[in-house]
Simulated scan of single mutants.
Amino acid sequence: MRRYAVGFVARVTARNRLPLDYSVASLRVVDSVVEGLRKGDTDRERVAGTLFGLGAYVGEVLVRHAGAVWVDLDAGQREYFGQSVGVRMPDGRVWNPLGKVVNRFEAGREESLQTFYLLLHGRRSRERSS
């Protein structure tokens, strides 16, 4: 998934000059992009590839800043999350950044990706990440 996220960022930033630098602050940019897709009155199926790429990006931010690792989900997790991959946090919890982006698209601002990161259970504490 890391390669996919990096390739997605390279494609989107080349065309749109989006500041996707894998920082936690850049999740605000992702929120804005998803909000723009919503306001465009776009059918979710037509933007599915973009949502997937943004989900990979969000997951990669979790990997780089919260101590997560990409994992293949087991059958029960795949059924629950509707995805084949997710991230495992340092405390063992598994999260679904790909689905979280879809939720942001469908539900709007109350599903903020930046807030998701800031309230995320199981992320590495600042003291240990330094």
Rank of each mutant, 00 (worst) to 15 (best):
V30N: 06
V30L: 11
V30W: 04
V30P: 02
S32E: 05
V34D: 00
V34W: 01
V34M: 04
V34G: 05
V34S: 00
E35A: 11
E35V: 06
E35I: 02
G36T: 03
G36E: 05
G36Q: 08
G36A: 10
G36F: 08
L37E: 06
L37P: 08
L37I: 07
R38C: 02
K39M: 11
G40F: 05
D41C: 07
T42V: 12
T42E: 12
D43G: 01
D43W: 09
D43Y: 01
D43F: 09
R44V: 14
R44D: 06
E45L: 14
E45D: 15
R46G: 01
R46H: 09
R46P: 00
V47F: 02
A48S: 14
A48I: 09
A48T: 07
G49S: 12
G49T: 11
G49N: 13
G49P: 12
T50L: 14
T50D: 07
T50Y: 06
T50K: 08
L51Y: 02
L51E: 07
F52Q: 08
F52M: 08
G53R: 01
L54H: 03
L54Y: 03
L54T: 00
L54D: 02
A56V: 08
A56C: 11
A56R: 07
A56S: 06
Y57F: 03
Y57K: 01
V58M: 06
V58R: 00
G59V: 05
G59D: 03
G59N: 07
E60Q: 14
E60L: 12
V61R: 01
V63C: 15
V63P: 13
R64F: 07
R64T: 02
R64D: 05
R64K: 14
H65G: 01
H65L: 15
H65Y: 05
H65V: 02
H65D: 03
A66D: 09
A66V: 10
A66Y: 06
G67E: 08
A68L: 09
A68K: 03
A68D: 10
A68Y: 03
V69L: 11
V69Q: 15
V69F: 00
V69W: 00
W70R: 14
W70M: 11
W70C: 08
V71P: 07
V71S: 07
V71W: 02
D72W: 02
L73T: 03
D74G: 03
D74T: 06
A75K: 13
A75L: 13
Q77S: 05
R78E: 15
R78T: 10
R78I: 10
E79C: 03
E79K: 15
E79P: 00
Y80D: 15
F81D: 11
F81W: 12
F81A: 14
F81V: 13
G82D: 12
G82T: 11
Q83W: 06
Q83H: 15
Q83M: 12
Q83E: 15
S84C: 04
S84G: 10
S84R: 15
V85C: 08
V85P: 01
V85Y: 10
V85L: 07
G86A: 09
G86I: 10
G86H: 10
G86N: 10
G86F: 08
R88H: 08
M89W: 03
M89K: 06
M89A: 02
P90R: 12
P90Y: 11
P90F: 14
P90A: 10
D91Q: 11
D91V: 04
G92N: 13
V94N: 04
V94G: 05
V94H: 05
V94E: 07
